[in-house]
Computed example of a mutant assay.
Amino acid sequence: MAGDFRRAHGAGGEAGAGEGEAEGQDIGARLRELRKMYGLSQRELAKRAGVTNGTISLIEQNRISPSIGSLKKVLGGFPISIADFLTLDLKPRAKVFYAAKELREIAGGDVSFRLVGRDTRGRAIQMMHERYKPGADTGEEMLSHAGEECGIVISGVLQLTVGGEVRRLVPGDAYYFDSRLPHRFHNPGTVDCVIVSACTPPSF
C-alpha cells in the first residue's frame, strides 16, 4: 500500500528513496483527531496541505500507510511538527481549565498568591494571581532563586526592585527578569495591587 501511495501521490518527490514510513501507530485516528481539534473538514485540510480529499480520507481510514514525506506534507496544514504529531497526547489527561474558586491560595494575609493548579509537580511553569494590599510587600529580605519570572500589573501600583533598579509599575506595565537577581515586590498605593505572574521553573 505504501509503495502505491508514493507512486500515486509522490511523483513530485514527496518520498525519496529509502525514506521510512510512519509505522507502529494509528496514524489515521491521530490525523482525524487533530483535524477535528482544529475544526477542519477533510476538504479544508486537503486544500491547506495541497493534496486531494481522497488522500486525507484514505489516510484517516488507514487504507493507505503514508511515507514520512507524504505525512509531513499533510501535516503542513497544521502548526505542528511530525515529531509532535507522533508523540503528543491529543487528548489531555491532566486538568486544563480552572474556575476562579479552584485556584490554590499559597500565601494569605496582606499578600495573596493564588496558584493555577493544586501543585506544580511535573510542570515547567508556575502561574499565579497575586494580590498585594496597600503597604504590603514580600518582606525586608530580598528574594532570590533560580529561574525566570514575568508578570503584568492588572490594577493598582507595584513598586518592583530588581538588582539595583527600582520601578513603579501601573496597570498594563510588565516585567521580566532573571530570578537569581535579588528582588522585592511592594505596593506603595492606597488600593490593592493585582498581578498575573509566571515563573519557570516553579518556585512553590
Rank of each mutant, 00 (worst) to 15 (best):
P188H: 14
L86W: 01
R184V: 05
R118D: 01
V157M: 13
G16Y: 01
S144G: 13
A136N: 06
R168G: 04
L75W: 02
H183S: 13
L45P: 01
F97G: 15
P202H: 10
V96I: 11
H186D: 04
V194H: 02
L158G: 03
L158H: 10
N62V: 14
A107S: 13
L58K: 12
D178S: 02
L71N: 00
E149M: 14
S41D: 12
R131K: 12
S57N: 01
K91A: 09
R48A: 05
F177T: 07
I59K: 02
S41M: 10
V170A: 09
V162W: 02
Q61E: 08
R63D: 12
A22F: 00
L88S: 06
I64Y: 04
H9Q: 11
T138V: 04
V51P: 00
D192E: 13
E148W: 05
P202Q: 04
K91R: 08
T87R: 08
T200M: 11
V191C: 06
V196K: 05
R114G: 09
Q159E: 15
A22D: 10
G28M: 04
L45D: 03
G3T: 12
S197Y: 03
T52Q: 10
F97R: 15
A46E: 02
T55Q: 00
A136C: 01
L160R: 01
H183G: 11
A94H: 13
M142Y: 09
V74K: 00
L86R: 06
C150G: 15
V74Y: 01
Y175Q: 03
D137Y: 04
Y38A: 05
G24M: 05
G18F: 03
L181F: 15
N53D: 14
M1Y: 05
N53T: 11
K133C: 01
V191P: 05
L71D: 03
E141F: 06
L169H: 03
A17H: 07
A146Q: 12
H9A: 09
D137V: 06
T138P: 02
G164Q: 14
M142W: 00
Q42M: 07
G69I: 15
G69M: 07
E105Y: 15
D26R: 14
P182V: 06
I27C: 04
E60I: 07
S179D: 15
P66H: 08
S65I: 02
A174M: 09
G122K: 05
V153I: 13
A124N: 11
L160K: 06
D4R: 13
S67R: 13
R30H: 12
G16K: 12
G135F: 11
G3I: 10
G163F: 11
M1S: 09
R123V: 00
G156N: 07
L86P: 05
V51H: 04
G117H: 12
S57E: 03
I68Y: 08
Q159S: 14
A174G: 04
S144T: 13
G109A: 09
E165K: 13
V166I: 11
G109T: 10
E105N: 04
V194P: 06
T200G: 07
K101E: 05
E105F: 00
L90M: 14
L158E: 05
C150L: 14
L40F: 11
R131A: 02
G13P: 10
